[in-house]
């Protein structure tokens, strides 16, 4: 009983950063950009989030804002490289992971391993006290709820605005979009930048809400899990919540199980999220035939006067 209550209560905290990063990646990939550098951008978001929290009067809001700003900058640089200079998206993405790790490793020393109080969960009398689901539904920090709002916003943006339509067209068929007078480069750059904001925010959340501390390389592959999550979600924002809940559930289970003292080797538990991600990838390939849902121009640079 208590196990279930706690597990449910902690699941959203683990799910939110994955959903946020996946949202950013969905925006990226819908425009045709494959950003494998999410892991590195998250790290920078986490560090900048912590720095601004500590240096700017312990304000979580400022931490989140500057964390996503870091994501905006890195997202823009990534976009500039792959969209304008048309670098290989795989190589650039992987390099961004190391860049993020290197930048935070170099700049972050003074702020590493400093515990912060970060953002606290809300408490609504009575509602939060409902057994089992009370804390799960009404006892999360504000950003968990904001994340859900973001999911709705991103969905509305992609499917209920002209800009969203144009952005999807750029990812599906840049030739057609271009012939219709849509500036392919501008949209992709925009998508990379906005996507970066979400990824940066996700990193700041990791530091300020989940871990409440900055540790070197603290993302621990979550950027990669988010990339797999996008495939699982078939590039649909609301499905990212399902995936986020799945992975968040697994991650939230680890400390719970450790606490209960169930005799499962610790490191096999730590391995679980990665095994689960692998399983999900295989499932997506077998069942969802994910290749069909992927934006057709994903990862392919566009040059108008390209003639073979």
């Amino acid at each position: 009983m208590e196990f279930l209550t706690n597990w449910l209560a902690f699941m959203p905290v683990f799910a939110a950063p994955l959903v946020l990063a996946a949202l950013g990646l969905i925006i990226n990939e819908r425009a045709g950009i494959l950003n494998l550098g999410a892991e590195g951008i998250m790290l920078c978001g986490a560090l900048i989030g912590i720095i601004s929290y500590i240096e700017l009067g312990e304000s979580s809001a400022l931490g989140f804002i500057f964390g996503s700003l870091a994501g905006v900058i890195l997202g823009f640089v990534f976009g500039f490289l792959v969209v304008v200079l048309r670098t290989n998206q795989v190589v650039t993405g992987i390099t961004f992971v190391i860049l993020g790790s290197g930048l935070t490793g170099l700049m972050g020393i003074p702020w590493v391993n400093k515990a912060v109080s970060g953002i606290t969960p809300i408490y609504i009398p009575h509602l939060t006290d409902i057994p089992i689901i009370g804390r799960f539904l009404f006892g999360q920090d504000i950003l968990v709820y904001v994340t859900i709002i973001f999911v709705v916003f991103v969905w509305l943006f992609l499917y209920r605005t002209r800009t969203g339509l144009e952005l999807r067209a750029v990812g599906e068929n840049p030739q057609a979009a271009d012939a219709n007078g849509i500036n392919v480069e501008a949209y992709r750059l925009l998508a990379a930048t906005i996507g970066g904001a979400f990824i940066g925010l996700s990193g700041a959340y990791l530091a300020l809400a989940m871990a409440k501390i900055f540790v070197l390389d603290m993302t621990q592959g979550r950027g990669w899990i988010a990339i797999a999550l996008v495939i699982f979600a078939r590039w649909m924002p609301w499905r990212a919540i399902i995936g986020g809940a799945l992975f968040g559930g697994i991650e939230a289970l680890i400390p719970r199980l450790k606490a209960t003292g169930v005799p499962i080797p610790q490191y096999y538990l730590e391995m679980a999220p990665y095994l689960a991600t692998l399983a999900v990838l295989i499932y997506a390939a077998l069942r969802l035939r994910s290749g069909q849902d992927a934006p057709k121009a994903l990862g392919i640079p566009y040059v108008r006067e390209d003639r073979k």
Binding site: L165, A169, N173, A176
Partner: peptide, 25 residues
């Protein structure tokens, strides 16, 4: 064009809005 400049998995309406949409959705 010889190769149509249409986005295949969008509707006719969406394709034309893509080219000539104005104002809100």
């Amino acid at each position: 064009h010889q190769h149509f400049k249409l986005v295949e998995n969008m509707t006719v309406l969406e394709n034309i809005v893509l080219a000539h949409g104005q104002g809100g959705w």
